[in-house]
Amino acid sequence: MTATEELLQIERVTKVFTVGSFFFKTRINAVENVSFGIKPAEIFTLAGESGCGKSTIAKIILGFEEKTAGEIVFENESIAHWREKRQLFIQKVQAVFQNPFESFNPLCAVDDIFFETVYNFHLVQNEKEAIPFIDERLKAVGLSFSEIHSRYPSELSGGQLQRASIARALLTNPSLLVADEPVSMVDASLRMSIVNLFARLREEMNLSVLYITHDLATAYYVSDRIAVMFRGNIVEMGPVEEVLLNPRHPYTQLLRDSIPEANPHRKWKGSVRVANVEEEEYLQKGCKFAGRCSLAEERCRVDFPQETLVDGVLVRCHRYN
């Protein structure tokens, strides 16, 4: 691995959760040997259904969750070293969450946390400098200071709040933005404005974005590379055009085919096997997708497939071995 190229490198990260009661404990690999890297000024998408472990990865990167095994390297330094200078790490890695209505304390004015951030990181000396500083970042997302000044979250719209939460993350001039489902709670008509914002910030501020989503349409539109996760494993990873226009893994194919078209005359056809209980699928031997896969063979249920490189795309499926 060339250490200098990647901004953030995730190497064989595993997260084990223990579920169940006192006597019947089961260990579930919520994230299993996941490796990927994000380059500077790259938008990297982590896609998959709910409960596939994509948010767990975000939490591990942000330090909210301990990884069980593996290594995370940010700017060529292990995340264990960053722990000692947590404030500096936070300054460089910022986060945007799913529900903008819940991102701000309902009892505090929205600009509260903006001031808190700029003073905390010693970005400005006093209020006189703070206001233009905050205003500048808000302008970058299409808001202004007067729009949020002494307003409470309940007085702003979801789109405004989500853009404000992105602006707040940009205050510290981060090099990586971890965006966990940033558009799934935003009105459909505003989604593109948020996604476009990511693309523009990447151009203007050299910002890398880890875009976590289940929405393949916006992922295709905005990202450079994509990793599709299923039950704790990356099943397919590569350039976004290659992966989504020409999906190789049966799960990616299923996801791609599930994108509804805005065409009422085209009926959705094909039958889908309904997912098993999440826990069952996690504990399954062999390929975790075998229970739902229409192409599953005997070896899929027994052997865990290895990653194979097919035309620049990493695929974890027996059909390509």
Partner: peptide, 17 residues
């Protein structure tokens, strides 16, 4: 475990606050 507490923490707001 509310989202805004995590968001504040991710934003570097001090634990006391």
């Amino acid at each position: 475990s509310e989202s805004y507490v995590w968001y504040a923490r991710a934003g570097g707001v001090r634990e006391r606050k």
